[in-house]
């Protein structure tokens, strides 16, 4: 088990180095930092001197390793726009994105799972068919459209929920969280639903098809022949066996929720890293963009690791010892 974790951590490091190389290349190929720093009055000698001082004459690989090493210690350079260290800028925005992603993941997973199991058990029921048909809308509508529609319905027409911003926040261990206040929670509902709707329908359809698959297996037939109640079969047996493939996809979906909160955050002006990234793009704030890229890489790698470990918790056939 320990060996497995260490091996996976090694693989994770390799993936991050690859992602790091992409974000490092942004500096190399998007704009010229020397030009930006010296301005128009600089002489050729000034340029050469600065290039030498910044280490730009070293081989690419040396420059990259230096970048990666700094990034590992949290030093991503200084934001062109804010003039603050990028690490600080991102850390300041990260809680907003994470709490939004968490809420929308809870929404997507819980509702997706419940509806998926329901539509599988009541395969031919009217309500189940209705849910399945409606879910197509969730799968096919683009996120920004859903967001705008929700704002139109619940903010403009009904006036129940705020249409933008994060609302009040409360500090917990030095981190400001909106989820802890009623006002903040109200502000979160619309963006969380918008962000999670697609994932919810996806999880629901996946759970349904996996569950239908499991319900056809021999051990479910045998469980029926043993006289177990429908309830025990559905929830004691079938649901557990549905989990393994569902967890894989759900894990990756959570990564996407964090990474692609960009659209939702701009629709609702949610002050998270997604919005930060959009603003960075329009200002060509390369240090922020490259750090964001690495952050997304870290999140995906971490989630994958957690998913792999969850398999072990669910499926006894995977225990390394095998007994």
């Amino acid at each position: 088990m320990l060996a497995f974790i260490i091996r996976r951590l090694g693989q994770a490091l390799l993936v991050l180095m690859a992602v790091g190389f992409v974000s490092f290349s942004m500096f190399k190929f998007m704009g010229d930092p020397v030009e930006n720093m010296l301005g128009q009055e600089a002489t050729v000698a000034d340029r050469a001197e600065l290039e030498e001082r910044l280490g730009l004459n070293d081989p690419i690989i040396v420059q990259y390793l230096r970048y990666f090493q700094r990034a590992m210690s949290g030093d991503f350079g200084v934001s062109y726009r804010a003039g603050l260290p990028v690490g600080e800028v991102i850390l300041d925005r990260l809680p907003a994105t994470l709490e939004l992603a968490l809420l929308s993941a809870v929404f997507a997973i819980s509702l997706g799972f419940v509806l998926g199991v329901y539509t599988a058990i009541r395969r031919d029921g009217y309500l189940a068919n209705f849910i399945m048909t409606t879910s197509l809308i969730g799968v096919s509508l683009p996120t920004f459209l859903i967001g705008v529609f929700l704002i139109w319905a619940f903010s403009v027409n009904l006036g129940w929920l705020p249409s933008f911003g994060r609302g009040d926040t409360r500090s917990l261990f030095g981190v400001d969280l909106a989820i802890l206040t009623v006002d903040g929670l109200k502000s979160m509902i619309l963006p969380a639903v918008t962000l999670g709707l697609y994932q919810m329908t996806l999880i629901m359809r996946l759970v349904r098809s996996e569950m239908l698959e499991v319900l056809r297996t021999d051990y479910i037939r045998f469980a029926r022949a043993r006289g177990l109640s429908q309830r025990a079969i559905n929830f004691g047996h079938a649901m557990k066996n549905t989990l393994v493939p569902v967890i894989t996809v759900t894990g990756l979906q959570f990564g996407s929720i964090v990474a692609f909160a960009i659209i939702t955050e701009s629709v609702f002006q949610w002050p998270g890293v997604g919005l930060l990234f959009i603003n960075a793009v329009s200002f060509v704030d390369i240090p922020v963009m490259s750090a964001y890229l690495l952050l997304v890489g870290v999140i995906f790698v971490t989630i994958n690791l957690v998913v792999d470990l969850l398999y072990f918790a669910i499926d006894p056939r995977l225990s390394v010892s095998g007994k």
Partner: peptide
């Protein structure tokens, strides 16, 4: 299960692996 029980062909797939 109580009065009539059934045994299927394939013992590999008759038991829930989890």
């Amino acid at each position: 299960g109580k009065r009539i029980a059934m045994v299927f062909q394939d013992p590999l797939t008759s038991l829930n692996p989890l």
